[in-house]
Nucleic acid binder design. Sequence first.
DNA 1: CGTTAGGATGAGAAGCATTATCAACAAGCT
DNA 2: AGCTTGTTGATAATGCTTCTCATCCTAACG
Lengths: 150, 150
Amino acid sequence: MCPGGTPRAAAAAPPEPRVTKQRVAVGDALDTLNDFVTTQELHRLMADDGASVSLATTYRILQSLADDGLVDVLRNGDGEAIYRRCSVSAHHHHLLCRNCGKAVEIEAPAVEAWAAKTAATHGFTSVNHTVEIFGICPECSAASQPATQP
Amino acid sequence: MCPGGTPRAAAAAPPEPRVTKQRVAVGDALDTLNDFVTTQELHRLMADDGASVSLATTYRILQSLADDGLVDVLRNGDGEAIYRRCSVSAHHHHLLCRNCGKAVEIEAPAVEAWAAKTAATHGFTSVNHTVEIFGICPECSAASQPATQP
DNA sequence: CGTTAGGATGAGAAGCATTATCAACAAGCT
DNA sequence: AGCTTGTTGATAATGCTTCTCATCCTAACG
Ligand SMILES: [Zn+2]
Ligand SMILES: [Zn+2]
Ligand SMILES: [Zn+2]
Ligand SMILES: [Zn+2]
């Protein structure tokens, strides 16, 4: 019975990440934001805030959080990964400002069903999808066009 | 009358790209494919096919084609740009195999309407969107699981 | 058909984001 | 407190993409 194994962890218990001050700092920084940011942007924000976390570690922690589904990851127009803490753990999508990064979380059951049906129709398996809407948010539009109105 | 200007090109006529053998080679290579490919993949394919186009030029031409809307561009899971010749010029999306790159073009008016409405509801302007479905195509599924069925 | 101006190309350097290394460190456990 | 092992930081390395610039070639013109 259970040959050569530690008492717990029957098969392959994934070890939980340790609670380090760097990990806490990243978590706190994410909590103060409701915008999507790149790893480098978050690193700079933390540095400006006094928290000292190396860039390499910021990359590592964000990737780890993403792997565990604790943050949302998607790609900006340049193909760079951008991160944001999920407010809901369920599957959802985003409407985000390509100028300031502000994001609105969106749920669209109809789109989910459409995607699943479309994939099934063509015999595709192991399906996932990306559905993101990019635009300029009201604040950014207002800022760029103060008063003129043709 | 038209001081200091060439006869044509009243305001800012965008100069058409010249027809070079490199541009033709890229066009031909794209025509032989119905899969999405990265710039480097296309460069290798052309090299294998005898066509000699430098990597830098391949980058330039694909970007140019994309800017003119002559090829579809999207991002794979790694954030790399992947290209494919549009069979339809109208706006559409794709269902593509993340293993072999094969793509099916999809039109979904309902999704278009949903995206526009969602953006408008939140006051976003200059809106565009990405809607892509990734999966494993029937051929690739069959290849990876020949006969076993637990 | 020869000339010519300027866009296009190739080869390599440069830029940049991301990842890999590895010694030093510290979180968690006994 | 002491030990074990996951984490961190500084830096090198990797690899994709862009830039530079001398040369080449297309397109237009005489
Ligand atoms: Zn905004
Ligand atoms: Zn979805
Ligand atoms: Zn396939
Ligand atoms: Zn669409």
